[in-house]
């Protein structure tokens, strides 16, 4: 294992983690924090925040960067929407991020479950904002319409990496399809804030990163996150390098200069890490 740089040190408090983990267990909920083995779990759970992973913890795709288990998932849990809302209330979340395993087995890709969760949160936690971090739902417009109709404040879908590495890193996804998801959602409802993210450290070049930003921006996307790829295990896609905090600062400036309205760019930035900060930064412009 390559030696970790100083900026990849995180704090971990077992008692704080246990408290949030117990709540999720009691309500039969999953978090992407746990399933993806997120490095920020200790910090986020200590601050009583987390990102709900709806539609089960088993994914139908096998992306080579991701720690989520691949297999045959169970049908959607009808109690999940209300349990998510209950957990959000218990944690007193002001901004809820919902993500999912990719459910290619479901005709709507899980869109209706997203919509039900958004509506349940609206009912139980009035005033709380919601961000849906969706899969590409195979680019199906009817599925995307279902999510859009629930009107989350933020519609997030990650492109994950530069165009040139898509096939190697996320073989069951498509670059143009992901850009199409962002473009369609923005065109369908221009009041929706759209957001995406990508990783660095997979072997991409500076020129490829610049072109990726241009392609994303062309979809009308508002918010961008850039974070370090961290290899979950030796069996996952190999790490090419650790980018420095200075690299991330440079990419942030570049993205802002190109026209993104908010950019979170740091080694441990993740698409839902401190997601409310991005919303607060840009939401009052609407």
């Amino acid at each position: 294992m390559e030696k970790k740089p100083e900026w990849l040190k995180v704090r971990y408090n077992q008692d704080a983690v246990n408290e949030v983990a117990a709540l999720m267990r009691d309500l039969k909920l999953n978090t992407v924090c746990k399933e993806a083995n997120c490095p920020n779990l200790g910090e986020c759970y200590q601050k009583h925040t987390s990102t709900f992973m709806i539609l089960g913890s088993v994914c139908t795709r096998n992306c080579r960067f991701c720690n989520v288990t691949t297999g045959h998932p169970l049908p959607p849990d009808p109690e999940e929407p209300m349990n998510v809302a209950r957990a959000a209330k218990k944690l007193n979340l002001r901004h809820v991020v919902l993500t999912c395993s990719t459910r290619d087995d479901l005709p709507d890709g899980g869109a209706e479950q997203f919509a039900k969760c958004v509506r349940a949160i609206r009912e139980v936690c009035p005033g709380t904002t919601v961000e849906t971090l969706i899969s590409d739902m195979k680019g199906d417009h009817a599925a995307l319409d279902t999510v859009i109709a629930a009107h989350p404040e933020v519609l997030n879908h990650n492109v994950e990496t530069v165009k040139e590495l898509q096939a190697a890193v996320r073989p069951q996804a498509r670059y143009e399809r992901s850009l199409g998801v962002l473009r369609y959602c923005k065109e369908k409802d221009p009041t929706l804030l759209t957001k995406t993210g990508f990783m660095v450290g997979l072997g991409e070049t500076e020129e490829q990163i610049g072109r990726l930003m241009d392609d994303i921006l062309e979809t009308g996307c508002d918010i961008l996150t850039i974070g370090q790829y961290l290899q979950p295990s030796p069996q996952h896609y190999p790490l090419a390098r650790y980018a420095t905090p200075e690299d991330f600062a440079r990419w942030k400036e570049l993205a802002l200069s190109k026209g993104f309205r908010h950019v979170a760019s740091a080694p441990l930035a993740r698409s839902s890490y401190k997601a409310w900060e991005a919303l607060e930064d840009v939401h009052d412009l609407y």
Binding site: M1, K4, L8, K9, V10, R11, Y12, N13, Q14, D15, N37, P39, G42, L230, Q231, P232, S233, P234, L268
Partner: peptide
């Protein structure tokens, strides 16, 4: 309580484990 006590390296990061 809350002070980092020891470090554990995982595949992704180095975790500074706090005293409880």
């Amino acid at each position: 309580a809350g002070e980092p006590l020891f470090e554990i390296e995982t595949n992704k990061v180095v975790n500074q484990v706090e005293a409880t």
